[in-house]
């Protein structure tokens, strides 16, 4: 059975990950341009991690 989630809850991911990325970037750098670069990296890293986790779980679900 495939793993699924309502689109409404899935959309809630974006404001949270944007907030987390900005705060992490803000606590790593002082200059605004560097804060934004770090935030962008954090966003990509978290999103990639979530997608890989989702793929692994989906695969495990397919195996069962």
């Amino acid at each position: 059975m495939p793993i699924s989630m309502s689109l409404e809850y899935l959309l809630l991911y974006f404001p949270l990950v944007i907030s987390v990325s900005l705060v992490v970037g803000g606590t790593r750098h002082e200059r605004a341009d560097l804060v934004l670069v770090q935030a962008q990296r954090t966003f990509v890293w978290i999103t990639t991690f979530m997608l890989v986790s989702y793929a692994v779980l989906q695969f495990a679900s397919w195996m069962v």
Partner: peptide, 23 residues
């Protein structure tokens, strides 16, 4: 007097908190 970061933190954290309260 770190106004840019102050704004970032204020908006990011309080919006997360408000969104959580809403949900």
């Amino acid at each position: 007097r770190r106004y840019a970061k102050s704004s970032i933190f204020f908006l990011s954290i309080l919006s997360s908190f408000a969104l959580g309260m809403f949900v």
